[in-house]
Design a protein around this nucleic acid. Structure first.
Lengths: 350, 350
DNA sequence: CTTATATATACTCATTATGAGTATATATAA
DNA sequence: TTATATATACTCATAATGAGTATATATAAG
């Protein structure tokens, strides 16, 4: 037996931490599926005490270090228990220290929660879900779906509000500089001027809107910039969520949109057999963009991501499409098989 | 004032978690610098109780939720206290639940540690560091540095040992299939056959070697496959580290190698003014690869990442090189400015 | 002072990847 | 039959990439 590193060292390190710093670990999951060409996430509706419409929450479970060996095992465990969903792909997103995530007011003294956010993909859609429901993720981010063209909310509400915010007096000393930076952030995030829309910037856009005080969460958390929310000018920029759950969801979106381009995760959302156009529709739903159909086929086929099944799809419309299946072997052949996509520059070819 | 989500809901959620599930949060940092064309990380040498050579540890600090609002603030705080280093770029890597990270034996009953790994970059090299020291990161991963060609350890030790492991009886039922998968993993990770070396797979390589029981950490943790380590055949595949610190370091390497290609993080490691070749050397040190000099220049200049200072470098050797500086404005101009590099296929052009 | 040598920098070129379009095939509905 | 809708194959221009040659400007050797 090889020598062990010595118990004493372990205990020494752990002894430096006292019980008063102990926290509770919470596991939050953004569980994503796609159905009817819409990405959906599993949410738990929370009613307000005053009867008002509640703020949705992501499914949440505590991590019990006694029962579960790893965080991911703990996550899978309670998701399974609570929803009977079987998760396919699971990926850790980010860990938040509690006061950074809860609003200052709702922070219970003495108890501290650190939450680990997860992205999970599942195929199962129409399961019976006690207490939870699938909700189209673009209801939380209406500015993220460009499949029908630029969402009107951007030019009608977001950009004007951000312009106003960018022009405001800033707290920091270098006045003119701060305004310029705000304007740049706006430009890069929302594709103002000649800047191209970047589907992967979902998290940055959420954070920008939060910083600018344009989200209900910002007002709830008592952000200094959240002036416009107090009066009748309060814009309704997407459905809010509890705590920082909408931020976790934005993180999940950004990660998934990026990942889909270099790892074959989209297939986790597909049935065993599918047409290439069905695959494309799923990808487009996630990206919130249209892609060039012919090039999509070329890409998928050249990359060896799929293989023909020989069966044809008896679908409505025109010529029947062939059914394909995912070629699992690519994982063992190529280094980074994914769907490197580019959005169509024109919308001529849908 | 907009309505708040309601305290009751918060407390309800937190009430589901009991004190027996409380854990302590540890923050581990892989603090990276580059000097003399070598990437170095800050380690804390730990002596064995029996006087044997110790296992290095990453700097470690507890997270105190009372004192620090966020995890990153907590990290910066104790790093500052302990090392006087000022960190530039900081990025969260991954969070490990304790039994997944500590070996089963060293697990103290009743106390549970969840550790959050961070990557941090710093320019400061020759500071006075009490108790800590800079160590070349390739000492922990000798197979990762391809700048002088393929490291001999791969063909001499790693590939033969992995081949033996891949051919072994597997525990799982589908016998032949499991062996094939092991062989595929080996091929993809270490570029056997015609597969190209992928610098970003550092973590996958570490995990493969660990699974195959070829690392001292695997033997320490009592991994079932760690046969070769017990006798005189024990290979010496890089310096081991405490707990899962070498895995955290591998994670940091993979992330940094990937990030450098689409975000201008390399400049965090450069002095304010530098020649393009110095920049290239730093990048090559991190990637463990040579890149094509002329194309590197073209890339960096076309991307608008640098601007001329006018000053020339009085270096030894040939024609003096011009000094450049990082163009911070690029962050506000382009969506994803980085150094999309490709390793030289031939080593003709250094 | 000239030449060898080392490095820096500019420029060229072939190949591939990418974005976008046209052409053709095969189904259903009028 | 014809119109229409979709699937699929093929073409083409442009950009990105990998790799090399050519030239500029320094130091060191002779």
């Amino acid at each position: 037996m090889a020598k062990t590193p010595g118990k004493s060292t372990t205990q020494q390190a752990e002894a430096t931490m006292h019980a008063d710093k102990a926290v509770v670990i919470g596991l939050n999951a953004a569980i994503v599926t796609v159905s009817d060409d819409q990405p959906k996430i599993l949410v738990v509706p929370h009613e307000e005490t005053d009867g008002a419409s509640g703020w949705d929450a992501l499914p949440f479970g505590p991590f019990n270090p006694v029962r579960h060996r790893t965080l991911e095992i703990g996550l899978r465990s309670w998701v399974q228990e609570q929803t009977q969903l079987e998760l396919g792909y699971v990926e850790q997103l980010y860990t938040f220290g509690d006061r950074g995530r809860h609003s200052l007011e709702t922070d219970a003294p003495g108890e501290h929660v650190v939450s680990v956010g997860y992205l999970a993909l599942t195929r199962g859609y129409d399961e019976t879900l006690k207490g939870a429901a699938w909700c189209d993720w673009y209801r939380y981010f209406p500015w993220e779906d460009w499949r029908e063209g630029k969402p009107p909310i951007i030019d009608q509400a977001i950009v004007p509000l951000l312009r106003e915010w960018a022009g405001r007096q800033s707290e920091a000393p270098p006045e003119e500089l701060a305004r310029g930076k705000r304007r740049d952030r706006m430009r890069l995030c929302f594709g103002v001027d000649d800047v191209a829309w970047d589907d992967e910037k979902a998290l940055e856009r959420y954070e920008l809107l939060y910083s600018a005080g344009l989200l209900l969460e910002a007002a709830r958390d008592g952000r200094p910039n959240a002036r416009g929310l107090t009066g009748k000018h309060a814009p309704n920029l997407g459905r809010p969520m509890q705590f920082d759950h909408r931020r976790i969801l934005a993180t999940a979106m950004s990660r998934l949109r990026a990942k889909i381009k270099y790892r074959p995760v989209a297939f986790e959302l597909m049935p065993p057999s599918f047409t290439l156009y069905e695959l494309q529709k799923t990808v487009e739903a996630l990206l919130g963009l249209h892609v060039h159909k012919q090039n999509f086929r070329r890409l998928v086929e050249n990359a060896g991501l799929v293989e023909r099944t020989g069966r044809m799809s008896t679908r409505t419309g025109g010529r029947p499409a062939e059914q394909f299946r995912f070629r699992r072997e690519v994982l063992n052949e190529r280094p980074a098989p994914g769907l490197k996509l580019a959005p169509s520059r024109s919308r001529a070819n849908s």
